[in-house]
Each structure stands twice: as C-alpha cells, then as structure tokens.
Design a binder for these strands. Structure first.
Lengths: 224, 224
DNA sequence: TCCAAAAATTAGACATGCCTAATTATATTT
DNA sequence: AAATATAATTAGGCATGTCTAATTTTTGGA
C-alpha cells in the first residue's frame, strides 16, 4: 500500500480520513457541511481545503455529486486507517492500554511517516485482522477483511463466536469485561436466550455458564 | 517525569530539545546563532521563538549568559529525549529497523503526547538503559544512567564488555556487524591488541577469536 | 413557480512559524 | 580607541490553516 510520496500535511491527512469514513458509511453525498461537522470546524475552512485537495488530485468535487476520493486519495486514506488500527492493536496488546484510551493516541500515531512502518508493525503484531473496536484492518494491498462482526445478542443459540471489540467503552463496562475475563479473541458460546428480558446465558472459553443482560450483549462485538 | 500539561507545539518541542542537547555538550553559551545552526533555520526565527519560550517560562535568556532551560523546560526536553530513545529501541528490537533508520522515525514518534506512554513503552521494552546509539535513556524521574560507554579499542586487554551502540551507521559497517553476529547487548572479550596496526583480537560471545581492524574497534560503542 | 431556509462560497482577518533585508549591538583587530 | 567584522534584533512579508461575517447558490415547501 505505498502512496508514492509522503507529502501530505497533518491537516490534509485528517481531511482524507474523514472523507474516507463518510464515504464508506453510505452512498450519501459528502458535502462541505458534513465534513465540517466531522472535523468540528467551520464549513468555510473546509471549502478552502477542498480546493487544495482538488489541486493535488486527491479528491474530486462537484457540487452536484459532492466530494469523492480519487484513487490516489483513497490509497492515502486507507494507509492512514491501516496505521491507526494497527497502532490501536499495539497500544492495547503490548502497552496494556485499555479500549477507551487507544483511539486518542492512535490519532497521533497514524500520522507517522515511513515507507515500511505499517508493514513492519503489521508483521510484529502477527497480522491482526481487526482492531480493538472490531473494525477490520486494511491489508498492505488495500484489501480489507469482510466485516463479519455483529453484536453478541444477535448470535444464534448454540453457536460459538469470538470477541472482536466493544461498542461501549465506558470504564464500568470494561471493568466488567475484565472481571469476566473477556478480551479480544475470547471465545464465547451463546447457550440460551431468555425471552423474558432478552438476557443471555453464555459460556466463556467453554467454561461455566454466566448470565448477562441484553445491554451487555448489545455492547459486545463478535464474529464467528 | 510528568510535565503537567502537554501544550507544547511540535516546533517548541524541537527548540527545547536542541537547547537541551547544546547545553549538555559543553558549558558554552547557547546563542541564537548556535540554535539556528542546529535547526537549520534563520537566526531571526530563533529570536522570535526564544521570546515565546521566555513568555512560557520554559527558558531564561540574557544576552550575556545565553539561553538556559528552566526546570520546567528541562523536564519537557528530558521527556522528549526519553521518548526518542525508547522509540529507537522499539524500532530496532521489535520492528527490525536498522541502526541508521531509527533516528528519523523516532524524530516523529518523540512528539506523541500521552501521560503514560513513555513509562509503558519503557516497561514493555524491559527498561533499557541505552538506545541503539549507546546514548543513555533518561528514567521516568529524569535521572540518567552514567555514560560508561567507550569505544572497543579503548577496552583493556583481557576484559569483557557489552555492545551498547555504534558510532558509524554506514550500511557496510552494519552489514559487517551482522555477519559477525554482533548486536546490542553482545558480549565481547578483548583478547589481545596488536601493536603493529592497532588491530584487535576479540572473542564474540565467548566464541572463537576474530581479528578486527582499529577502524572497526573505533566504531563500536561498548560498556563494561 | 416563487419564497424561505439551508448550504456553499467569498472576503477579510488572525495566529503560527518561517523568511529576507535593514538595523543595532557586541566583539575583535589594529 | 577607532574601525571592522560578527551577532542579534527589528521590520515587514509570506504560507498554512483556521475563523467570522456577508453574500450567493441551491433546495424544498407552499
């Protein structure tokens, strides 16, 4: 996933990243206003920057169609996302940061420039497929694992899944997870769903069963 | 080694770092010109920034005495140096970068802000005392290991030392080291010095003896 | 279709951190 | 001590990326 040059400023990179994220979520037209909301800045600032990105051939912009990344822009955006998610894995697994702390630091680390960095980090971490939030990590060639993930409450009775992330990063939830000895990669079998309150009986790592609430089962991201 | 706030800009941090390095090398007066040479910028720019750093109470500046870091400024500078050297160890040991590649990337990584980052990285790396260039890594409290290091050619006959870094980062030297299976931490015994050409007979990791040139022995940093 | 609200854009400013050129202060030589 | 060279500073500008306020364009409802 080489981008050729590494001449983007921090600000440009953040715009590309935001445009990428807005673009994948939906087929919606990406407008200056949408970007300004995502970046918590002023639409006027966005318009200035869009001009610059058009000049650099990183985006296309027509009022009717909205903003769209060019191939070049997409490559750069994907590399930033790749670095962000790899660093999150590093921070969680190697430096023992918690789920809710990694994002902010990865926001900084994603802008470190070096041609080999992402690939070496990827190898060092054992080529992880998902980051601690359950989001797929783009591969070196720009491909991305399919997002199989769902929430625990939607898993079928009797099936076993693997934890890929959390939807809730409150410390109370994270502490509860710690207490239950649930982390990234933990295997969970959904033994039974209780219709009354939608709570679920689960077996963690094939161990004894525990009952968890619907709120809990809605907050845990898993895939099979 | 907390600095309280983390409000320094990248540029300010680079100034503090340069002032720190200029200050430790010698008792020389640190002048705007000296700083501008270290930063490859214009003395006029330096004067602007010095005013700002004085306002922020990070340095003291009197024409007669030159520039001096305040306690606050020193703390920040030491933390940057600590992060720089820890990241260098990480890049070399974990990501398998070579001695000559780590500096440039560490120049970027040293500016990542997070209260726990340096300490967690330090722990993860096993509390290394020296970076790949043999420079001591400041501890969390700001203390620094004494620089015991010297060059291999100055080690006494019969004594054993440990490699802490290199003075020469040319790829020919680094490849030679690789061939000899010498890396950070490798134990070397200086068996004999040959007066004729100052070459040295050494035993690597207690293994069989090898002869190396004076140039080689001058380029390898060790401590006992 | 026309009007009002929302969105986009332009104009003009500002902070940061850099520059060059001109000026002033400090050192060094003679 | 005066002259000269060097260092430090000031003045004025520029690029980046942001802002507010004013204006124009677009869109959707009556």
């Amino acid at each position: 996933m080489s981008t050729g040059s590494h001449l983007q400023t921090l600000s440009e990179e953040n715009y590309l990243k935001v445009i990428y994220h807005l673009g994948k979520d939906a087929k919606l037209k990406i407008s200056p206003t949408a970007i300004s909301e995502a970046l918590s800045n002023n639409p006027a600032s966005v318009v200035d920057m869009l001009k610059k990105l058009v000049d650099k051939k990183l985006i296309q912009y027509e009022k009717a169609k909205g903003v769209k990344l060019t191939e070049k822009g997409k490559k750069i955006a994907l590399l930033i996302v790749r670095k962000h998610r790899l660093w999150e894995v590093f921070l969680l697994e190697k430096l023992e940061y918690s789920w809710d702390e990694v994002h902010e630091i990865a926001e900084q680390l994603e802008h470190i420039h070096n041609p080999q960095l992402a690939d070496r980090l990827d190898k060092f971490l054992g080529f992880p497929q998902f980051d601690p939030h359950g989001d797929p990590i783009p591969k070196a060639n720009g491909e991305m694992a399919e997002i199989y993930r769902t929430i625990l409450s939607e898993v079928a009775e009797g099936s076993t899944c693997q934890v890929v992330g959390v939807k809730d990063t409150s410390s109370s939830f994270l502490q509860y997870l710690k207490k239950l000895d649930i982390g990234i990669g933990t295997k969970i079998t959904l033994v039974e769903k209780i219709p009354f309150d939608n709570s679920a009986i689960i077996a963690i790592k094939g161990g004894p069963s525990t009952t968890v609430s619907k709120i809990f089962a809605d907050s845990l991201l898993v895939h099979d």
